[in-house]
């Protein structure tokens, strides 16, 4: 498993695990307001890296989109995925 980020306010934590399909799980303090937007950032970033099968968990403490994207990119590169 790969883990990046923190649980500090305005940050998020990303966890990646092996899986035979793509599964995205989001926990967020602003899920009601921004859940869809967070999903879009995660999905788009996985697409950019052509990752089709992974279990991705994002625990969000109110991070802005570019923070979420940076945490996920770092996780993917630690995971060994080449930038597409």
């Amino acid at each position: 498993m790969i883990k990046t980020g923190t649980l500090e306010s305005s940050d998020c934590m990303i966890e990646l695990r092996e899986s035979n399909e793509r599964k995205i799980e989001i926990e967020s303090i602003v899920f009601e307001q921004f859940g869809d937007q967070i999903y879009d950032v995660l999905k788009t970033t996985l697409d950019e890296y052509h990752v089709k099968a992974v279990f991705l968990r994002c625990i969000d403490k109110g991070a802005l989109d570019y923070t979420i994207k940076a945490r996920l990119k770092a996780a993917l590169e630690l995971w060994g995925v080449d930038h597409g």
Binding site: E32, Q33, F34, G35, D36, Q37, L64, D65
Partner: peptide, 10 residues
């Protein structure tokens, strides 16, 4: 511009 538009809560 930074945060996006928050959805109204129910």
């Amino acid at each position: 511009n930074y945060t996006g538009i928050p959805k109204d809560v129910t």
